[in-house]
């Protein structure tokens, strides 16, 4: 089955699936592919964007189309670069940064039409309902895993959870994933930052050797779980995707900051792990702000993926744990 690539949590996966192509979230990130991506963009581009470009370029025959959003500048421009370097059709969806329902509504409308044209299919209430039900039931299942992760003590590791979410983001429900149900009494932390990529599992495991991530908010991972479509119609899809907890690029950013604070409280977190990619400036700005306003210790990891597994990273994580323990 051909894939329909997409870049952002604001793009309704149900609409993509209606095309008959498999929705595949572009969430690649590792040292090698990111280096290779420098063929298309400058070194100081987002390392995930570089990885994704490499992935798209090397697998261009797999993709029927790419759907992007204006969510962040680099990911929007990533599709410009993809369009110039491949023959894959590209659709870019206008995702307003401010509270502007009109634009969002019109753009969902546009996206729907374009997807219909692309797939030569007519979406109808029945097919829409069908698709929403399918994805919603998947999310219900994921939420139960997430609840076990959030339980105190936590029952599921985020590394495991990441594997399940990977299946979801790649539209591969049928993939076999093993869930680690190991109960953990380690310090409970919240994970923030730019996208956790498919290749980030190792770093999650490294963190979870000492800590337990019980909740997260970033461009990938559990964001999809905030999508709870009540009414299985186009309007319902629009309503839900528009109203999801705002990403860091929304202005003003108050709702984002509040959301993070509320979640860390709800989950009884004792610390925050903030993982950002190099050159992801907007996230960097917000994280610094969170660090200054939130009442929890923050472990900062900023990298272009190459930090993964380094001894410095291990030292940092261990020192963070020592710090958390000395505080309680």
């Amino acid at each position: 089955m051909q894939l329909i690539g997409y870049t952002c949590s604001y793009i309704p996966v149900e609409l993509l699936a209606l095309t008959g192509f498999r929705p595949y979230r572009l969430l690649h990130g590792d040292v090698d592919s990111s280096k290779r991506g420098e063929k298309f963009v400058r070194v100081d581009a987002c390392p995930m964007v570089k990885s994704n470009l490499d992935h798209i370029f090397r697998n261009q025959n797999d993709f029927a189309a790419l759907v992007g959003s204006t969510g962040c500048d680099m990911s929007r421009r990533m599709l410009d670069v993809a369009a110039e370097n491949t023959r894959i059709p590209v659709l870019v969806f206008n995702n307003p940064r401010t509270d502007n329902r009109t634009i969002f509504h019109d753009e969902i409308d546009w996206l729907t039409q374009r997807l219909e044209r692309l797939s030569r299919r007519q979406f109808n209430p029945a097919s829409i309902q069908n698709e929403v039900t399918k994805w919603e039931s998947m999310r219900v299942e994921l939420r139960t895993i997430d609840e076990r992760r959030a339980a105190n003590p936590s029952q599921v590791s985020t590394a495991s959870f990441h594997e399940v979410m990977t299946a979801y983001c790649q539209g591969a429900f049928d993939r076999d994933v093993s869930i680690c149900r190991e109960r953990a009494d380690r310090p409970r932390v919240y994970l923030l930052g730019s996208a956790i990529t498919y290749e980030s599992n190792a770093i999650l495991r490294l963190i979870e050797d000492h800590l337990r991530i019980v909740g997260d908010f970033n461009c990938g991972l559990s964001r999809a779980l905030d999508i709870r479509i009540q009414e299985p119609t186009l309007a319902g899809i629009e309503e839900t995707y528009y109203g999801q907890p705002p990403c860091v690029f929304k202005r003003p950013d108050r709702r984002f900051i509040d959301h993070v604070r509320d979640e860390t409280r709800r989950l009884n977190c004792t610390g925050v792990v903030a993982w950002t990619l190099d050159y992801c400036d907007a996230y960097e700005f917000e994280l610094r702000k969170i660090e200054r306003t939130i009442d929890l210790p923050v472990l900062r990891i900023r990298s272009d993926f190459s930090l993964q597994g380094s001894s410095q990273l291990r030292t940092r994580i261990e020192a963070f744990v020592e710090m958390l323990c000395s505080k309680t």
């Binding site: 210790p297 190459s306 380094s310 410095q312 940092r316 710090m323 000395s326 505080k327």
Partner: peptide, 22 residues
């Protein structure tokens, strides 16, 4: 030599710390 760190203390304990990125 390889790492630099800034450590903030509160009541003699580590309150926050940062290290240089690679």
């Amino acid at each position: 030599g390889q790492d630099s760190k800034v450590i903030k203390l509160k009541d003699g304990h580590v309150d926050r710390f940062v290290m240089n990125d690679r």
